[in-house]
Design a protein around this nucleic acid. Structure first.
Lengths: 240, 240
DNA sequence: CGTTGCGTTGAATAAGGTCAAATAGAGTGG
DNA sequence: CCACTCTATTTGACCTTATTCAACGCAACG
Protein backbone atom coordinates (compact mmCIF):
# COMPACT_ATOMS: atom_id res chain seq x y z
CA UNK A 1 0.00 0.00 0.00
CA UNK A 2 1.40 3.33 -1.06
CA UNK A 3 0.11 5.46 1.76
CA UNK A 4 1.76 8.75 2.56
CA UNK A 5 1.29 11.02 5.51
CA UNK A 6 0.67 14.70 4.96
CA UNK A 7 0.86 17.51 7.41
CA UNK A 8 -1.60 19.68 5.57
CA UNK A 9 -4.46 19.18 3.17
CA UNK A 10 -4.49 22.71 1.88
CA UNK A 11 -3.10 21.51 -1.44
CA UNK A 12 -6.38 20.13 -2.60
CA UNK A 13 -7.29 20.96 -6.15
CA UNK A 14 -8.53 24.34 -7.14
CA UNK A 15 -12.19 24.41 -8.06
CA UNK A 16 -13.16 21.35 -6.11
CA UNK A 17 -14.61 22.09 -2.75
CA UNK A 18 -17.24 20.67 -0.51
CA UNK A 19 -20.86 21.39 -1.27
CA UNK A 20 -21.72 23.09 2.00
CA UNK A 21 -19.75 26.35 2.22
CA UNK A 22 -18.39 25.18 5.50
CA UNK A 23 -15.30 24.04 7.23
CA UNK A 24 -14.08 21.28 4.93
CA UNK A 25 -13.94 17.61 5.74
CA UNK A 26 -11.00 17.66 8.07
CA UNK A 27 -11.84 20.28 10.64
CA UNK A 28 -9.32 23.01 11.16
CA UNK A 29 -6.95 21.79 13.83
CA UNK A 30 -5.01 18.59 13.73
CA UNK A 31 -4.65 17.31 10.17
CA UNK A 32 -1.41 15.51 11.03
CA UNK A 33 -2.67 12.00 10.56
CA UNK A 34 -4.74 12.34 7.43
CA UNK A 35 -3.37 10.00 4.82
CA UNK A 36 -3.14 10.45 1.12
CA UNK A 37 -3.13 7.85 -1.63
CA UNK A 38 -3.29 7.44 -5.39
CA UNK A 39 -5.61 4.90 -6.98
CA UNK A 40 -5.34 4.10 -10.65
CA UNK A 41 -8.28 3.39 -12.92
CA UNK A 42 -9.91 0.03 -12.33
CA UNK A 43 -8.20 -0.56 -8.97
CA UNK A 44 -10.20 -1.07 -5.82
CA UNK A 45 -9.99 1.04 -2.66
CA UNK A 46 -11.51 -1.84 -0.75
CA UNK A 47 -13.57 -4.94 -1.43
CA UNK A 48 -16.73 -6.23 0.18
CA UNK A 49 -15.58 -8.19 3.20
CA UNK A 50 -12.49 -6.07 3.87
CA UNK A 51 -11.90 -4.65 7.32
CA UNK A 52 -13.11 -1.09 7.87
CA UNK A 53 -10.15 1.20 8.45
CA UNK A 54 -11.77 4.56 7.92
CA UNK A 55 -13.71 6.64 5.44
CA UNK A 56 -12.32 8.20 2.28
CA UNK A 57 -12.54 11.71 0.87
CA UNK A 58 -11.95 12.09 -2.86
CA UNK A 59 -9.39 14.70 -3.80
CA UNK A 60 -9.49 14.09 -7.55
CA UNK A 61 -11.15 11.52 -9.77
CA UNK A 62 -14.27 9.42 -9.38
CA UNK A 63 -15.36 6.07 -8.01
CA UNK A 64 -18.23 3.62 -8.03
CA UNK A 65 -19.48 1.23 -5.39
CA UNK A 66 -20.69 -2.20 -6.30
CA UNK A 67 -22.61 -4.71 -4.25
CA UNK A 68 -22.53 -8.43 -4.95
CA UNK A 69 -25.92 -9.95 -5.63
CA UNK A 70 -24.83 -13.31 -4.17
CA UNK A 71 -25.52 -14.85 -7.55
CA UNK A 72 -22.15 -13.74 -8.80
CA UNK A 73 -22.92 -10.53 -10.61
CA UNK A 74 -22.17 -7.17 -9.09
CA UNK A 75 -24.48 -4.20 -9.23
CA UNK A 76 -23.40 -0.59 -9.21
CA UNK A 77 -25.12 1.23 -6.36
CA UNK A 78 -23.50 4.67 -6.29
CA UNK A 79 -21.04 6.93 -8.03
CA UNK A 80 -18.81 9.34 -6.12
CA UNK A 81 -16.91 12.35 -7.43
CA UNK A 82 -14.21 14.70 -6.19
CA UNK A 83 -15.13 16.38 -2.93
CA UNK A 84 -17.42 13.57 -1.85
CA UNK A 85 -16.85 11.01 0.89
CA UNK A 86 -17.48 7.27 0.85
CA UNK A 87 -16.96 4.18 2.99
CA UNK A 88 -19.64 4.69 5.63
CA UNK A 89 -21.03 1.23 5.04
CA UNK A 90 -18.19 -0.28 7.03
CA UNK A 91 -19.01 1.43 10.30
CA UNK A 92 -21.83 -0.92 11.17
CA UNK A 93 -19.63 -3.82 12.21
CA UNK A 94 -16.14 -2.90 11.06
CA UNK A 95 -16.63 -4.72 7.76
CA UNK A 96 -17.20 -3.26 4.33
CA UNK A 97 -20.30 -4.56 2.59
CA UNK A 98 -19.52 -3.17 -0.83
CA UNK A 99 -16.51 -2.68 -3.06
CA UNK A 100 -15.25 0.65 -4.33
CA UNK A 101 -13.46 0.91 -7.67
CA UNK A 102 -11.80 3.91 -9.33
CA UNK A 103 -13.40 5.04 -12.60
CA UNK A 104 -10.25 6.93 -13.50
CA UNK A 105 -6.87 7.67 -11.97
CA UNK A 106 -7.76 9.29 -8.69
CA UNK A 107 -6.46 10.54 -5.37
CA UNK A 108 -8.07 10.05 -1.99
CA UNK A 109 -7.54 10.83 1.65
CA UNK A 110 -8.33 8.38 4.38
CA UNK A 111 -9.82 9.51 7.63
CA UNK A 112 -8.95 6.69 10.05
CA UNK A 113 -11.71 4.94 11.93
CA UNK A 114 -10.27 6.06 15.25
CA UNK A 115 -10.85 9.67 14.29
CA UNK A 116 -14.28 8.93 12.87
CA UNK A 117 -15.52 7.04 15.88
CA UNK A 118 -14.02 8.61 18.96
CA UNK A 119 -15.74 11.90 19.64
CA UNK A 120 -12.87 13.07 21.82
CA UNK A 121 -10.15 12.63 19.23
CA UNK A 122 -11.79 14.70 16.57
CA UNK A 123 -12.62 18.27 15.87
CA UNK A 124 -16.26 19.30 16.03
CA UNK A 125 -15.93 20.31 12.39
CA UNK A 126 -15.00 16.82 11.27
CA UNK A 127 -17.75 15.30 13.37
CA UNK A 128 -20.44 17.50 11.90
CA UNK A 129 -19.18 17.07 8.36
CA UNK A 130 -19.22 13.30 8.58
CA UNK A 131 -22.75 13.26 9.91
CA UNK A 132 -23.74 15.53 7.05
CA UNK A 133 -22.19 13.27 4.45
CA UNK A 134 -23.87 10.23 5.89
CA UNK A 135 -27.17 12.03 5.97
CA UNK A 136 -26.69 13.10 2.38
CA UNK A 137 -25.96 9.55 1.34
CA UNK A 138 -29.16 8.39 3.01
CA UNK A 139 -31.19 11.07 1.26
CA UNK A 140 -29.63 10.24 -2.07
CA UNK A 141 -30.33 6.55 -1.72
CA UNK A 142 -33.95 7.29 -0.86
CA UNK A 143 -34.20 9.28 -4.06
CA UNK A 144 -32.61 6.48 -6.00
CA UNK A 145 -35.08 4.00 -4.57
CA UNK A 146 -37.94 6.16 -5.77
CA UNK A 147 -36.32 6.30 -9.16
CA UNK A 148 -35.76 2.57 -9.42
CA UNK A 149 -39.14 1.78 -8.01
CA UNK A 150 -41.53 3.92 -9.92
CA UNK A 151 -39.96 5.52 -12.97
CA UNK A 152 -39.68 4.20 -16.40
CA UNK A 153 -36.47 4.01 -18.31
CA UNK A 154 -36.31 7.46 -19.92
CA UNK A 155 -37.22 9.11 -16.63
CA UNK A 156 -34.50 7.13 -14.85
CA UNK A 157 -31.89 8.25 -17.31
CA UNK A 158 -33.13 11.84 -17.14
CA UNK A 159 -33.02 11.75 -13.34
CA UNK A 160 -29.50 10.45 -13.42
CA UNK A 161 -28.37 13.15 -15.83
CA UNK A 162 -29.97 15.90 -13.77
CA UNK A 163 -28.43 14.59 -10.56
CA UNK A 164 -25.05 14.46 -12.26
CA UNK A 165 -25.56 17.97 -13.56
CA UNK A 166 -26.31 19.23 -10.05
CA UNK A 167 -23.23 17.57 -8.65
CA UNK A 168 -21.04 18.90 -11.44
CA UNK A 169 -22.29 22.38 -10.80
CA UNK A 170 -21.61 21.98 -7.09
CA UNK A 171 -18.02 21.17 -8.00
CA UNK A 172 -17.66 24.27 -10.12
CA UNK A 173 -18.06 22.68 -13.53
CA UNK A 174 -20.60 23.36 -16.21
CA UNK A 175 -23.99 21.88 -15.40
CA UNK A 176 -24.84 21.55 -19.09
CA UNK A 177 -21.88 19.74 -20.50
CA UNK A 178 -19.79 16.96 -19.02
CA UNK A 179 -18.06 13.68 -19.67
CA UNK A 180 -19.45 10.46 -18.31
CA UNK A 181 -16.78 8.65 -16.39
CA UNK A 182 -18.60 5.32 -16.39
CA UNK A 183 -19.30 2.81 -19.14
CA UNK A 184 -22.74 2.10 -20.50
CA UNK A 185 -22.71 -1.16 -18.63
CA UNK A 186 -21.93 0.48 -15.30
CA UNK A 187 -24.59 3.08 -15.91
CA UNK A 188 -27.13 0.43 -16.87
CA UNK A 189 -26.35 -1.53 -13.73
CA UNK A 190 -26.77 1.58 -11.63
CA UNK A 191 -30.12 2.42 -13.22
CA UNK A 192 -31.39 -1.13 -13.06
CA UNK A 193 -31.63 -1.42 -16.85
CA UNK A 194 -29.79 -3.21 -19.63
CA UNK A 195 -27.14 -1.59 -21.78
CA UNK A 196 -29.44 -1.79 -24.77
CA UNK A 197 -32.22 0.08 -22.99
CA UNK A 198 -29.82 2.76 -21.81
CA UNK A 199 -28.54 3.23 -25.34
CA UNK A 200 -32.02 3.37 -26.84
CA UNK A 201 -33.04 5.93 -24.25
CA UNK A 202 -30.05 8.12 -25.01
CA UNK A 203 -31.23 8.03 -28.61
CA UNK A 204 -34.77 8.87 -27.65
CA UNK A 205 -33.74 11.84 -25.50
CA UNK A 206 -31.59 13.00 -28.37
CA UNK A 207 -34.43 12.66 -30.90
CA UNK A 208 -36.59 14.74 -28.60
CA UNK A 209 -33.91 17.41 -28.51
CA UNK A 210 -33.34 17.16 -24.77
CA UNK A 211 -29.71 16.11 -24.88
CA UNK A 212 -26.81 15.72 -27.22
CA UNK A 213 -24.78 12.58 -26.72
CA UNK A 214 -21.60 11.50 -28.44
CA UNK A 215 -20.15 8.45 -26.77
CA UNK A 216 -19.30 9.61 -23.26
CA UNK A 217 -19.70 13.30 -23.97
CA UNK A 218 -23.08 14.66 -22.86
CA UNK A 219 -24.69 18.04 -23.36
CA UNK A 220 -27.99 18.87 -21.72
CA UNK A 221 -29.98 21.00 -24.16
CA UNK A 222 -33.28 21.45 -22.34
CA UNK A 223 -33.13 21.05 -18.57
CA UNK A 224 -36.67 22.37 -18.40
CA UNK A 225 -38.23 19.54 -20.36
CA UNK A 226 -35.78 17.06 -18.88
CA UNK A 227 -37.16 17.88 -15.43
CA UNK A 228 -40.70 17.76 -16.75
CA UNK A 229 -40.00 14.29 -18.10
CA UNK A 230 -38.96 13.16 -14.64
CA UNK A 231 -41.96 14.66 -12.92
CA UNK A 232 -44.74 13.81 -15.30
CA UNK A 233 -43.34 10.75 -17.01
CA UNK A 234 -44.69 12.17 -20.24
CA UNK A 235 -42.62 11.69 -23.35
CA UNK A 236 -42.24 14.04 -26.32
CA UNK A 237 -45.33 16.03 -25.42
CA UNK A 238 -44.31 19.62 -24.77
CA UNK A 239 -44.87 20.19 -21.08
CA UNK A 240 -44.01 23.84 -20.60
CA UNK B 1 -47.51 18.01 20.80
CA UNK B 2 -47.82 15.56 23.63
CA UNK B 3 -44.21 15.31 24.60
CA UNK B 4 -43.23 14.09 28.01
CA UNK B 5 -39.89 14.09 29.70
CA UNK B 6 -38.65 10.94 31.36
CA UNK B 7 -35.85 10.53 33.79
CA UNK B 8 -35.10 6.97 32.77
CA UNK B 9 -35.56 4.79 29.76
CA UNK B 10 -35.18 1.51 31.57
CA UNK B 11 -38.90 0.86 31.16
CA UNK B 12 -38.56 -0.14 27.54
CA UNK B 13 -40.52 -3.16 26.53
CA UNK B 14 -39.38 -6.63 27.33
CA UNK B 15 -38.11 -8.57 24.36
CA UNK B 16 -37.27 -5.56 22.28
CA UNK B 17 -33.65 -4.67 22.37
CA UNK B 18 -31.11 -3.28 20.02
CA UNK B 19 -29.54 -5.59 17.52
CA UNK B 20 -25.95 -5.15 18.64
CA UNK B 21 -25.61 -6.53 22.18
CA UNK B 22 -24.31 -3.20 23.25
CA UNK B 23 -25.05 -0.20 25.33
CA UNK B 24 -28.48 0.83 24.08
CA UNK B 25 -29.27 3.94 22.14
CA UNK B 26 -28.96 6.49 24.88
CA UNK B 27 -25.60 5.82 26.45
CA UNK B 28 -25.52 5.20 30.15
CA UNK B 29 -25.18 8.54 31.84
CA UNK B 30 -27.49 11.46 31.35
CA UNK B 31 -30.87 10.29 30.08
CA UNK B 32 -32.62 13.27 31.63
CA UNK B 33 -33.54 14.98 28.41
CA UNK B 34 -34.72 12.03 26.33
CA UNK B 35 -38.32 12.63 25.39
CA UNK B 36 -41.10 10.14 25.00
CA UNK B 37 -44.18 10.34 22.81
CA UNK B 38 -47.13 8.28 21.61
CA UNK B 39 -48.10 8.25 17.94
CA UNK B 40 -51.36 6.70 16.86
CA UNK B 41 -51.83 4.73 13.68
CA UNK B 42 -51.80 6.83 10.54
CA UNK B 43 -50.33 9.91 12.23
CA UNK B 44 -47.06 11.41 11.10
CA UNK B 45 -43.95 11.91 13.23
CA UNK B 46 -42.77 14.53 10.76
CA UNK B 47 -43.41 15.52 7.16
CA UNK B 48 -41.01 16.22 4.33
CA UNK B 49 -40.03 19.85 4.70
CA UNK B 50 -40.32 19.92 8.50
CA UNK B 51 -37.46 21.21 10.57
CA UNK B 52 -35.06 18.58 11.90
CA UNK B 53 -35.31 18.43 15.70
CA UNK B 54 -33.58 15.14 16.35
CA UNK B 55 -33.70 11.45 15.57
CA UNK B 56 -36.25 8.97 16.85
CA UNK B 57 -35.90 5.57 18.47
CA UNK B 58 -38.92 3.27 18.32
CA UNK B 59 -39.98 1.83 21.64
CA UNK B 60 -43.04 -0.03 20.37
CA UNK B 61 -44.83 -0.19 17.05
CA UNK B 62 -43.70 0.36 13.49
CA UNK B 63 -43.36 3.13 10.94
CA UNK B 64 -42.80 3.77 7.27
CA UNK B 65 -41.03 6.58 5.46
CA UNK B 66 -42.40 8.00 2.26
CA UNK B 67 -40.78 10.28 -0.26
CA UNK B 68 -42.75 12.52 -2.57
CA UNK B 69 -42.07 11.90 -6.26
CA UNK B 70 -42.76 15.55 -7.10
CA UNK B 71 -45.56 14.35 -9.33
CA UNK B 72 -47.91 14.10 -6.38
CA UNK B 73 -47.69 10.46 -5.42
CA UNK B 74 -45.63 9.27 -2.48
CA UNK B 75 -43.42 6.22 -2.51
CA UNK B 76 -42.59 4.09 0.50
CA UNK B 77 -38.83 3.88 0.91
CA UNK B 78 -38.33 2.10 4.24
CA UNK B 79 -40.08 0.37 7.10
CA UNK B 80 -38.87 0.66 10.69
CA UNK B 81 -39.72 -1.53 13.66
CA UNK B 82 -39.28 -1.42 17.42
CA UNK B 83 -35.67 -0.99 18.46
CA UNK B 84 -34.72 0.78 15.25
CA UNK B 85 -33.89 4.46 14.76
CA UNK B 86 -35.01 6.83 12.01
CA UNK B 87 -34.80 10.48 11.03
CA UNK B 88 -31.19 10.72 9.89
CA UNK B 89 -32.23 12.27 6.61
CA UNK B 90 -32.76 15.61 8.33
CA UNK B 91 -29.18 16.05 9.45
CA UNK B 92 -27.96 17.16 6.05
CA UNK B 93 -29.38 20.66 6.23
CA UNK B 94 -31.72 20.64 9.21
CA UNK B 95 -34.67 19.76 7.01
CA UNK B 96 -36.45 16.46 6.70
CA UNK B 97 -36.66 15.15 3.15
CA UNK B 98 -39.18 12.39 3.80
CA UNK B 99 -42.27 11.84 5.90
CA UNK B 100 -42.64 9.21 8.61
CA UNK B 101 -46.03 7.68 9.38
CA UNK B 102 -47.04 5.19 12.07
CA UNK B 103 -48.27 1.83 10.79
CA UNK B 104 -49.90 1.13 14.15
CA UNK B 105 -50.22 2.81 17.54
CA UNK B 106 -46.62 3.31 18.56
CA UNK B 107 -44.29 4.90 21.06
CA UNK B 108 -41.06 6.68 20.26
CA UNK B 109 -38.23 8.54 21.97
CA UNK B 110 -36.67 11.60 20.50
CA UNK B 111 -32.96 12.23 20.75
CA UNK B 112 -32.63 15.98 20.27
CA UNK B 113 -30.41 17.31 17.53
CA UNK B 114 -28.20 19.07 20.05
CA UNK B 115 -27.27 15.74 21.56
CA UNK B 116 -26.84 14.12 18.17
CA UNK B 117 -24.60 16.78 16.77
CA UNK B 118 -22.44 18.12 19.53
CA UNK B 119 -19.77 15.56 20.36
CA UNK B 120 -19.14 17.16 23.75
CA UNK B 121 -22.67 16.96 25.02
CA UNK B 122 -23.12 13.28 24.44
CA UNK B 123 -21.91 10.00 25.78
CA UNK B 124 -19.50 7.99 23.65
CA UNK B 125 -22.09 5.22 23.71
CA UNK B 126 -24.74 7.34 22.05
CA UNK B 127 -22.27 8.64 19.51
CA UNK B 128 -21.17 5.19 18.44
CA UNK B 129 -24.70 3.83 18.35
CA UNK B 130 -25.92 6.60 16.08
CA UNK B 131 -23.06 6.10 13.66
CA UNK B 132 -23.88 2.40 13.62
CA UNK B 133 -27.52 3.00 12.85
CA UNK B 134 -26.69 5.38 10.06
CA UNK B 135 -24.23 2.91 8.64
CA UNK B 136 -26.83 0.18 8.85
CA UNK B 137 -29.35 2.33 7.03
CA UNK B 138 -26.82 2.95 4.26
CA UNK B 139 -26.10 -0.76 3.93
CA UNK B 140 -29.78 -1.58 3.86
CA UNK B 141 -30.52 0.96 1.17
CA UNK B 142 -27.70 -0.39 -0.97
CA UNK B 143 -29.28 -3.83 -0.67
CA UNK B 144 -32.64 -2.41 -1.57
CA UNK B 145 -31.19 -0.73 -4.64
CA UNK B 146 -29.82 -4.06 -5.80
CA UNK B 147 -33.22 -5.57 -5.23
CA UNK B 148 -35.09 -2.88 -7.12
CA UNK B 149 -32.55 -2.74 -9.87
CA UNK B 150 -31.95 -6.30 -10.85
CA UNK B 151 -34.49 -8.67 -9.37
CA UNK B 152 -37.78 -9.70 -10.72
CA UNK B 153 -40.98 -9.51 -8.81
CA UNK B 154 -40.99 -12.85 -6.98
CA UNK B 155 -37.37 -12.37 -5.94
CA UNK B 156 -38.17 -8.90 -4.64
CA UNK B 157 -40.99 -10.20 -2.52
CA UNK B 158 -38.87 -13.09 -1.28
CA UNK B 159 -36.05 -10.71 -0.39
CA UNK B 160 -38.44 -8.52 1.52
CA UNK B 161 -39.85 -11.47 3.46
CA UNK B 162 -36.40 -12.76 4.34
CA UNK B 163 -35.25 -9.33 5.48
CA UNK B 164 -38.35 -9.01 7.59
CA UNK B 165 -37.76 -12.45 9.01
CA UNK B 166 -34.22 -11.52 9.99
CA UNK B 167 -35.37 -8.34 11.68
CA UNK B 168 -38.16 -10.15 13.51
CA UNK B 169 -35.70 -12.68 14.79
CA UNK B 170 -33.37 -9.89 15.93
CA UNK B 171 -36.25 -8.52 17.98
CA UNK B 172 -36.89 -11.86 19.63
CA UNK B 173 -39.88 -12.95 17.59
CA UNK B 174 -40.35 -16.03 15.44
CA UNK B 175 -38.51 -15.73 12.14
CA UNK B 176 -41.01 -18.06 10.45
CA UNK B 177 -44.33 -16.52 11.32
CA UNK B 178 -45.30 -12.89 11.60
CA UNK B 179 -47.94 -10.31 10.84
CA UNK B 180 -47.38 -7.72 8.16
CA UNK B 181 -48.00 -4.29 9.55
CA UNK B 182 -48.32 -2.63 6.16
CA UNK B 183 -51.03 -2.76 3.52
CA UNK B 184 -50.55 -4.38 0.14
CA UNK B 185 -50.38 -0.95 -1.38
CA UNK B 186 -47.61 0.21 0.94
CA UNK B 187 -45.69 -2.98 0.33
CA UNK B 188 -46.11 -2.64 -3.43
CA UNK B 189 -44.86 0.93 -3.32
CA UNK B 190 -41.85 -0.15 -1.30
CA UNK B 191 -41.01 -2.94 -3.73
CA UNK B 192 -41.58 -0.82 -6.79
CA UNK B 193 -44.47 -3.00 -8.00
CA UNK B 194 -48.23 -2.72 -8.28
CA UNK B 195 -50.63 -4.17 -5.73
CA UNK B 196 -51.80 -6.67 -8.33
CA UNK B 197 -48.30 -7.97 -8.93
CA UNK B 198 -47.62 -8.25 -5.21
CA UNK B 199 -50.82 -10.23 -4.75
CA UNK B 200 -50.09 -12.54 -7.67
CA UNK B 201 -46.60 -13.16 -6.34
CA UNK B 202 -47.91 -14.06 -2.90
CA UNK B 203 -50.10 -16.58 -4.68
CA UNK B 204 -47.20 -17.92 -6.69
CA UNK B 205 -44.95 -18.34 -3.65
CA UNK B 206 -47.84 -20.10 -1.93
CA UNK B 207 -48.42 -22.44 -4.91
CA UNK B 208 -44.75 -23.32 -4.80
CA UNK B 209 -45.07 -24.17 -1.13
CA UNK B 210 -42.60 -21.54 0.00
CA UNK B 211 -44.96 -19.50 2.15
CA UNK B 212 -48.41 -19.56 3.62
CA UNK B 213 -50.25 -16.27 3.42
CA UNK B 214 -53.64 -15.38 4.84
CA UNK B 215 -54.22 -11.67 4.50
CA UNK B 216 -51.56 -10.05 6.65
CA UNK B 217 -50.51 -13.24 8.40
CA UNK B 218 -47.40 -14.79 6.84
CA UNK B 219 -45.68 -18.11 7.51
CA UNK B 220 -42.39 -18.92 5.82
CA UNK B 221 -42.41 -22.62 5.02
CA UNK B 222 -39.14 -23.09 3.17
CA UNK B 223 -36.49 -20.48 3.90
CA UNK B 224 -34.01 -22.62 2.00
CA UNK B 225 -35.79 -22.38 -1.33
CA UNK B 226 -36.84 -18.81 -0.60
CA UNK B 227 -33.18 -17.83 -0.38
CA UNK B 228 -32.40 -19.85 -3.49
CA UNK B 229 -35.11 -17.95 -5.33
CA UNK B 230 -33.42 -14.68 -4.41
CA UNK B 231 -29.97 -15.83 -5.43
CA UNK B 232 -30.69 -17.68 -8.63
CA UNK B 233 -33.87 -16.01 -9.76
CA UNK B 234 -35.12 -19.47 -10.68
CA UNK B 235 -38.74 -20.24 -10.13
CA UNK B 236 -40.32 -23.53 -9.13
CA UNK B 237 -37.26 -25.54 -10.09
CA UNK B 238 -35.94 -27.30 -7.01
CA UNK B 239 -32.60 -25.68 -6.26
CA UNK B 240 -31.30 -27.54 -3.25
C1' DC C 1 -4.95 -5.78 -40.89
C1' DG C 2 -7.12 -8.68 -37.46
C1' DT C 3 -8.55 -8.61 -32.84
C1' DT C 4 -10.78 -7.12 -28.70
C1' DG C 5 -13.79 -4.42 -26.03
C1' DC C 6 -17.85 -1.30 -26.23
C1' DG C 7 -21.71 0.30 -28.11
C1' DT C 8 -25.63 0.13 -31.27
C1' DT C 9 -29.56 -1.90 -33.83
C1' DG C 10 -33.47 -5.07 -34.79
C1' DA C 11 -36.95 -8.78 -33.99
C1' DA C 12 -39.12 -11.83 -30.80
C1' DT C 13 -40.50 -12.67 -26.13
C1' DA C 14 -41.81 -12.30 -21.48
C1' DA C 15 -42.59 -9.61 -17.43
C1' DG C 16 -45.16 -6.48 -15.34
C1' DG C 17 -48.59 -2.69 -15.78
C1' DT C 18 -53.26 -1.09 -16.72
C1' DC C 19 -58.05 -1.29 -16.60
C1' DA C 20 -62.29 -3.18 -15.12
C1' DA C 21 -64.98 -6.22 -12.48
C1' DA C 22 -65.64 -9.47 -8.71
C1' DT C 23 -64.90 -10.57 -3.85
C1' DA C 24 -63.95 -10.21 0.90
C1' DG C 25 -63.51 -7.90 5.28
C1' DA C 26 -64.06 -4.31 8.70
C1' DG C 27 -66.85 -1.05 10.47
C1' DT C 28 -71.74 0.93 11.28
C1' DG C 29 -76.33 1.36 12.29
C1' DG C 30 -80.60 -1.01 12.71
C1' DC D 1 -77.29 -10.78 14.59
C1' DC D 2 -78.05 -8.96 10.13
C1' DA D 3 -78.05 -5.82 6.29
C1' DC D 4 -75.39 -2.02 4.36
C1' DT D 5 -71.41 0.62 3.05
C1' DC D 6 -66.76 1.49 2.24
C1' DT D 7 -62.37 0.11 1.41
C1' DA D 8 -58.78 -3.32 0.57
C1' DT D 9 -57.70 -7.17 -2.03
C1' DT D 10 -58.10 -10.49 -5.66
C1' DT D 11 -58.86 -12.00 -10.33
C1' DG D 12 -58.92 -11.90 -15.38
C1' DA D 13 -58.13 -9.88 -20.10
C1' DC D 14 -55.33 -7.04 -22.53
C1' DC D 15 -51.43 -3.95 -23.55
C1' DT D 16 -47.03 -1.54 -22.87
C1' DT D 17 -42.40 -1.84 -21.73
C1' DA D 18 -38.12 -3.53 -21.20
C1' DT D 19 -35.42 -7.77 -21.78
C1' DT D 20 -33.36 -11.26 -24.50
C1' DC D 21 -30.68 -12.85 -28.10
C1' DA D 22 -28.35 -12.11 -32.10
C1' DA D 23 -25.89 -9.60 -35.45
C1' DC D 24 -23.45 -5.59 -36.69
C1' DG D 25 -20.43 -1.19 -36.33
C1' DC D 26 -16.67 1.22 -34.62
C1' DA D 27 -12.63 2.81 -32.23
C1' DA D 28 -8.38 1.72 -30.04
C1' DC D 29 -4.46 -1.20 -30.21
C1' DG D 30 -1.45 -5.02 -31.03
Amino acid sequence: MDWQTHASISQRTANIDLQPPDVGPYGEGDEEMVQHRKISRGRYVFHAGDRFDGVYAIRTGSFLTEVGTESGQEQVTCFYFAGEVFGFDGMQDNLHRCSVRALEDSEIYMIPSSRVRDPMSQSPGLQRQLLRYMSEEIIRSHRLMVMLGSMRSEARLATFLLDLSRRMQARGYSPNEFVLRMSRGELASHLGLTVETVGRNFNRLQEWGLVDVVRKHVRLLDMERLSALVETGSGSASAT
